[in-house]
Amino acid sequence: MTQVAAQTPNLRIAIAGLGAIGKSISTTLAKGGVPGVELTAVSAKNHDKAKEFVATLARPVKVLNIADLEKEADLVIECAPAALLPEIATPFLKAQKQVIVLSVGALLFHPELIAMAKEQGGVIHVPTGALIGLDAMIAAAEGKIHSVRMVTRKPPKGLAGAPHLIEHNINIEGLTEAKKVFEGNARDAAKGFPANLNVVVALALAGVGPENTLLEIWADPAVVRNTHTIVVDSDSAKFTMTMENIPSENPKTGRIVAQSVIAMLRKMKSSFKVGT
Score class of each variant (00 low, 15 high):
residue 31 K to P: 00
residue 32 G to L: 09
residue 32 G to E: 12
residue 34 V to F: 11
residue 43 S to N: 01
residue 52 E to V: 12
residue 55 A to I: 09
residue 57 L to H: 08
residue 63 V to D: 08
residue 67 A to F: 04
residue 71 K to G: 09
residue 73 A to T: 06
residue 82 A to Q: 03
residue 87 E to D: 15
residue 88 I to R: 04
residue 93 L to Q: 02
residue 94 K to R: 13
residue 94 K to S: 12
residue 100 I to L: 02
residue 102 L to M: 11
residue 109 F to G: 04
residue 111 P to R: 09
residue 114 I to R: 10
residue 127 P to V: 02
residue 132 I to N: 13
residue 133 G to V: 12
residue 134 L to D: 01
residue 140 A to N: 00
residue 141 A to I: 03
residue 150 M to E: 07
residue 152 T to V: 15
residue 155 P to T: 14
residue 156 P to M: 07
residue 158 G to L: 03
residue 160 A to S: 13
residue 171 N to Q: 13
residue 171 N to F: 07
residue 176 T to S: 11
residue 177 E to R: 14
residue 181 V to C: 08
residue 184 G to R: 03
residue 184 G to Q: 09
residue 193 F to N: 00
residue 204 A to K: 07
residue 207 G to Q: 03
residue 209 G to Y: 07
residue 210 P to D: 01
residue 215 L to V: 14
residue 218 W to E: 03
residue 228 H to K: 10
residue 229 T to W: 07
residue 235 D to W: 05
residue 236 S to G: 09
residue 238 K to P: 04
residue 239 F to N: 08
residue 241 M to D: 02
residue 241 M to T: 12
residue 243 M to D: 14
residue 244 E to K: 13
residue 247 P to C: 04
residue 251 P to S: 10
residue 251 P to G: 10
residue 258 A to W: 07
residue 262 I to G: 05
residue 263 A to S: 14
residue 266 R to H: 13
residue 272 F to Y: 13
residue 272 F to M: 15
